[in-house]
Amino acid sequence: MSDEVVVKLNVNGRDHKVLVEPRKLLSDVLREDLHLTGTHVGCEHGACGACTVMVDGAAVRACLLFAVQVDGSKVVTVEGVTPTDGTLNPFQQAMQDCHGLQCGFCTPGFVVSMTSYLDDHPNPTDDDLKIALSGNLCRCTGYRGIINAARTAAGLPVPANAADGSDH
């Protein structure tokens, strides 16, 4: 067993210092050491996107990073993307309005990914959104609601035949 190392992280605006093995993934440090369990762990090898967080402003897979690698970084998790006044951010609100979640397991990953993406790309096309969403998997297959939420948050029209899930 290798020696534990001190890792300093600023998570959602708060400074933390943890003592962890180098092999400990950022996703596990967030959940187990900082008790921020909004970051979900699905596949644990970079395929599903449930663990997506922002590191220094960029959306990344927290399961593909060792916490020690991001020592000194600013991390934003799903707990940190909501406005402080208690409202939801535009994509979160759109997810609620468009029924973009079913079991909810994948939701934090979609929310962090699309919050980051829409901040960086305020005027995406419909195709851009579909490609941007491709890095997150929903095993309920509730993609129609999620795509409509992305369209709504981006100010794009929601096609009439896509208003519900009837054309799956």
């Binding site: 067993m1 290798s2 020696d3 190392v5 093995e21 180098p22 092999r23 993934l25 596990d28 644990e44 090898h45 060792f66 020690v68 690698q69």
Partner: peptide, 11 residues
């Protein structure tokens, strides 16, 4: 689904 232990170097 967790990596085995390693020593980490950041030159």
């Amino acid at each position: 689904m967790k990596p085995s232990s390693f020593n980490y170097h950041a030159p």
